[in-house]
Design a protein around this nucleic acid. Structure first.
Lengths: 147, 147
DNA sequence: GATAAAGTTTACGTAAACGTAAAGTAGTTT
DNA sequence: AAACTACTTTACGTTTACGTAAACTTTATC
């Protein structure tokens, strides 16, 4: 259970560090469905969760359209017709495959960053050696200054 | 060592399943630097590697501009000036943090998919029970038909 | 030597995801 | 009541990452 039941647009904007413009845009695209008090939008904690999901989706490289598709599908799924349930299961399988791909990509990237970092450090070590050869007399002064 | 040293634009397009338009666009944005034989582009295996990195970057949600930045920085780094080396090391740290974030996001997503799948299966089981109650006489026929 | 196949440049078009004014409303603080 | 603050709608502008069409050149094939 969340602490609050409802949120203003600026509360959500501040909490998740997005502009109100973005939030309104998400509503426009039907990813959020706030109610109204007069003109003013009132966001439920369900909306809040969805916003969180939207942003995570973005970090993972999902488009708003993809995220909306998932939301819609999940809503249909809740209505509990068998066909929808089965469809949802296969979609979930697809998404899992996507996540596997991403995990591979990340692992690859990490490996390459390891070797990149190693090369950097080697190159730095090389430079240090050259420095020493150029000015071996100042060795003591530099050592103490560095600490 | 790669099998081939050079590649045509359509070879790369086919191998990585992108359009030639995209590849030319990447050249235009200076992410690839093919040489020419007359007018025709000739891609080196270095270009091929870069194309692979570009596409992986995209899957990971990186913009072309970000990827280009990394390419440029790495090129500068190879020239081996100390400042560049240190800068590269801090950039690598930042990227690692990004990857950590992504791994968290993925883990979260996987958990939520687990519970989503569980709910689907429960709902399906419910539907099966109701079916049985509605038509218990046809039980045998259905069982064999399903296999 | 015609013709198709693959490549090229130039340039306008488009979808996504907002940014950014402009101008108005609703509540509330002084 | 004037001013401030937060919110609203409308609507045009912008960036990214290409798609798509037109018109042309080069290379391979019949």
């Amino acid at each position: 259970m969340d602490i609050k039941q409802t949120y203003s647009i600026s509360e959500l904007a501040k909490e998740f560090d997005v502009t109100t413009r973005s939030i309104r845009f998400y509503e426009d695209q039907e990813l959020l469905r706030p109610t109204r008090r007069g003109q003013t939008r009132i966001f439920s904690s369900k909306d809040r969760v969805r916003l969180k999901l939207i942003l995570r989706g973005k970090r993972m490289g999902f488009s708003l359209a993809e995220t909306k598709e998932l939301f819609d599908l999940w809503d249909e799924t809740l209505s509990g017709n068998e066909k929808q349930l089965l469809k949802m299961l296969t979609i979930l399988e697809n998404k899992r495959a996507q996540l596997e791909q991403q995990k591979n990509d990340i692992a690859q990237a990490e490996m390459e960053m390891d070797t990149a970092e190693a090369r950097c450090r080697e190159a730095l070590a090389e430079l240090q050696k050259k420095k020493k050869q150029q000015a071996p007399a100042k060795e003591e002064a530099r050592q103490t200054a560095e600490n």
